[in-house]
Write a protein that binds this DNA or RNA. Structure first.
Lengths: 202, 202
DNA sequence: GACAAAACAGGACAATTGACCTGTTCTGTC
DNA sequence: GACAGAACAGGTCAATTGTCCTGTTTTGTC
């Protein structure tokens, strides 16, 4: 009687859910996004959702550990490895982000920062996960500064605290840009960071 | 028959509501805070709440325009006016915040940033209000840099973009500190900003 | 093809959300 | 003290929240 043949695709369904959750959490916020909305976005029934993610919390954790961490890795850590030195990478990264935001018009903010702001005080486990992403970001950047010092490309550099400043400036600029819907803050910070790093390099 | 005498105190009730809302919004978040929780915190009946704030949205706008703006004014704009130059003020402000956070143990984040992150994409009017607070903050800081340049205290300074960097660094450091529950990022940024400004003031 | 477990469908559930309504009490004005 | 409007009490409302339950289908294994 049932004409519709069903196809079990657990990995695909799970991926669709996590995809939808990442997009929604980052753009609309974790709390503001309902499970029903996610089910509709992912075209998934309530049963399938409950099977893969019995609680919203676990979905949040997966999004942080998989997608948010991966986003930071792609936008920051990989370019850092690819470039000759830290200033080059930083300028390149800021430029890419500015171009991307200018192209599609709206500023949705830094995925990591967006989630960290509203989730870090709700759940200790989520906070730890987010903190871990920040740590790996900071570690990659400070390692690059350390290497630049070892190669005598840079001098008068405290790798750890300088990395913190760069990350903070990026996160803060993203936050302001999101509030104003304007890439200006990112352009400003890019220029100031570049000018500052010039004094330490070369 | 009714023994309990009631005392009408519209200004007091309104103030209690806004107080409770400000505390809850910046610590637990705007969306995460329910009207019932606010009524309990402020010891206010549903009728009184509906009379003063028919909708949660209006309460959010008042909190932003009155309390958040005032918080930024007190922590940043006033010290800027009181100090001799911008670097002195910035170092003082970072020091005060670090001391305060170290004292009470937990990092609840920058009120302006906390609200901006989760609200700016919900309501255009709230975003405008928050954007206005950012603007006044930026204007005050860049005006100080301009004055320092005019007084020949500083050189090689672009007042506007440098102010953006300082604000972004502060906001971002607060965000990371909140996620890690550690004042370290603020300490780092304070040191790096001070070292950077030394090269421009001389 | 029998069987078990995984995968999924669809709905129900209590709890909570923000908003609002009617009725009562207070307070200033004449 | 009569009156009007502001201020407040307490409850109701539909809508939505996240979670979970029962039943059905698919899939792999022997």
């Amino acid at each position: 009687m049932t004409e519709n043949r069903r196809t079990n695709d657990p990995q695909g369904v799970r991926r669709r859910i996590v995809d939808a959750a990442y997009d929604a959490f980052v753009s609309h916020g974790y709390i503001a996004t309902g499970m029903l909305e996610l089910r509709e976005r992912a075209s998934v029934s309530g049963g399938a959702m409950a099977y893969h993610f019995p609680a919203k919390r676990e979905l949040g954790l997966v999004v942080i550990r998989d997608r948010v961490a991966e986003a930071v890795r792609q936008t920051w850590i990989e370019p850092l490895h690819a470039c000759a030195d830290a200033p080059t990478a930083i300028d390149l990264i800021f430029g890419s982000i500015i171009n991307e935001l200018t192209r599609n018009g709206t500023v949705s903010g830094c995925p990591l920062n967006n989630m960290a702001m509203e989730v870090s005080h709700l759940d200790p486990e989520m906070r730890d996960a987010l903190s871990g992403v920040f740590s790996s970001w900071h570690e990659a950047l400070s390692a690059k500064f350390r290497a630049d010092v070892a190669n005598e490309r840079a001098h008068d550099v405290n790798p750890s605290s300088l990395a913190t400043l760069v990350i903070a400036a990026y996160s803060g600029a993203m936050a302001i840009a999101k509030a104003r819907q304007d890439v200006g803050p990112l352009v400003d910070c890019r220029a100031e960071l570049a000018a500052m790093l010039v004094t330490k390099y070369g």
